[in-house]
Amino acid sequence: MKSGKQNGGACIELRDISKTFPGGHQALKKVSLTVRRGQTVLVIGPSGSGKSTLLRCICGLEEVDSGSIRLDGRELTGQPGLRDRMRPELGMVFQAFNLFPHLSVLENLTLAPIRVRGRKKAEAESLARELLLKVGLADKAGARPAQRSGGQQQRVALARALAMNPKVMLFDEPTSALDPEMIGEVLAVMRDLADEGSTMLVVTHEIGFAREAGDELIFMDEGEIVEQGRAPDFFERPRTERARLFLDKILY
């Protein structure tokens, strides 16, 4: 159910953010974007187009050179203290999962809620078990991450981010490191999340997923947002030459 999604207020607002790496490569050129509460926004584009940098700038792993990033209306740039407190509000899912190998699956999920949010252990564990059930891994709580398949690891990573109950979930090519047969299980969980009304910003290469899962689609190229709108419109009637070239390449 996607009722009421379009009516949500702005969760993330980017205004003219730019980022140039020390080598001189300009990864983002005055990018502006709004993600509303409950909305799922998908970002596609060729590699090197700045999609990942966009996510990393939002969650704070990279500093922007200029522009404004607002979370729930509060300006994050130039506010180190606030930026620090807001870290757990931005749930990040990485391409390489980045699970903590020395902890069990359950401990991966409970670590931050206990240490950062100050939850009681029992409380954190019951929430973690709920989330594992949701991603279909209720029986794997005691396992070590390394013993699980890539698809299962990514679902654990997703649950780990959800355990912090973030305001928005950021996905950085979550299926790119997976074997093809495991992509589906991860996308299914993401689709469930979207349907439940989570706020999500997803960078992906999965065209099938992009076509039907998001509320809004963004096409980026060379550090800029080239097209923005509804997915079916983009795939059937790309307005720009760059988008047409990109679609030709990926759709043959």
Binding site: F94, F100, L111, A112, R115, A161
Partner: peptide, 27 residues
């Protein structure tokens, strides 16, 4: 140590000390 470990710990809101103590040093 894998940069991804630092980043994941950072994104979850762990302090620098916690990143060392809970994530990187045990590994």
């Amino acid at each position: 140590a894998d940069r991804g470990q630092w980043e994941a710990a950072w994104c979850l809101g762990l302090s620098r000390l916690q990143q060392y103590r809970l994530i990187v040093l045990p590994q």
